[in-house]
């Protein structure tokens, strides 16, 4: 045993080195998982806590030292109470109507506008385009005072979800995003369409739109999430309870339920769950949308 064959020496050394490297690898892995795990606690904990709180029964403490996280007497009562005392079904319906109609009409309008900016030469193109870009720096809240006046005195859609749909029918951001997408389509394809006798509208509809479908999905997701979560403008426009969207309704719920934390938690969970499911299903498109937006 004491005799080591000289030829074995480098082999064991290599093996020791190899196991050392592997050991370092596992250590590194443990380190990174710890960091990532701690961060996950920071970002997810409020959701977990609200989720558990929404199922707490009257005998489960909200405030106690030490704190109680998991309900011992889980119940759905908080959800039924919220559902009974507030028109939650209306809130959902209103939010879905606003988001769906805004997304579809906005994409229609902005993809129409993006086509000439990307592929046509016409007088005033650059001037109009830069004017649009300049509106990026206008704080949206600045327009709310005149928009409020328009809603009450001109369009008369105050206290209706139309007040949320009309101002969102076109956004400069989406025009810009879709213009970038149209630019990547080769001109030859359009010329081929023209030789076949297609008009500009046909070209836009049956050649361009199918090609840029990923960008349309991105724009749709961004618009949907923005509309779903929007609060400032909807809160100004929707005083009647049954006309409110989810976000505005949630603030009303918070006011109505006062110190009933269990009920408020149930309201928060109901508001957040749909958008989280939406995100999990469309995760890849979400991320692509973001990185695409930076490049543009």
């Amino acid at each position: 045993m004491a005799q080591t064959h000289p030829l074995n020496l480098p082999a064991t050394e290599a093996r020791r080195k190899a196991t050392g490297a592997a050991g370092r690898k596992t250590l590194e892995k443990i380190f990174w998982y710890t960091v990532l795990g701690l961060m996950a606690v920071v970002t997810a904990f409020p959701f977990v806590w609200v989720f558990f709180t929404s199922f707490k029964g009257p005998n489960d403490a909200i405030y106690s030292v030490p704190p109680q996280l998991v309900p011992q007497y889980p119940t759905f009562d908080n959800y039924t109470r919220v559902w009974q005392q507030l028109p939650m079904a209306n809130f959902f319906l209103n939010s879905i109507s606003v988001a769906a109609s805004t997304v579809s009409l906005n994409l229609l309008f902005t993809s129409l506008a993006a086509y000439p900016f990307a592929k046509m030469k016409f007088r005033g193109r650059d001037t109009i385009f830069y004017l649009l870009l300049a509106t990026f720096v206008v704080p949206p809240q600045l327009s709310f005072i005149p928009s409020f006046v328009l809603a009450r005195n001109v369009f008369h859609y105050y206290d209706s979800i139309l007040a949320l749909i009309f101002p969102s029918l076109a956004t400069v951001f989406n025009i810009f995003l879709l213009r970038q997408a149209f630019k990547t389509v080769p001109d030859d394809l359009l010329d081929a369409g023209r030789i076949d006798g297609a008009g500009e509208f046909r070209i836009w509809w049956s050649i361009l739109l199918p090609i840029i479908r990923p960008s349309l999905a991105t724009a749709a997701i961004i618009t949907f999430v923005y509309q779903w979560n929007d609060y400032f403008w909807p809160s100004l426009m929707l005083p009647t309870m049954t006309h409110k969207t989810l976000q505005v309704g949630l603030v009303a719920l918070q006011g109505a339920f006062g110190s009933d934390s269990r009920g408020i938690a149930a309201g928060v969970v109901m508001t957040v769950i749909p958008i989280i499911i939406f995100f999990i299903v469309l995760q890849r498109q979400f991320v692509r949308g973001l990185t695409g937006a930076v490049k543009g």
Partner: peptide, 28 residues
């Protein structure tokens, strides 16, 4: 993990703010 970190971004400031308010309450 990446997805988990993204959830606060899409949850909306109202819902998230209410959750924070409850946690930061004097009896929170």
């Amino acid at each position: 993990f990446r997805a988990l970190y993204y959830i606060p971004v899409i949850s909306g400031s109202i819902a998230v703010g209410i959750a924070w308010r409850m946690m930061l309450d004097t009896n929170g």
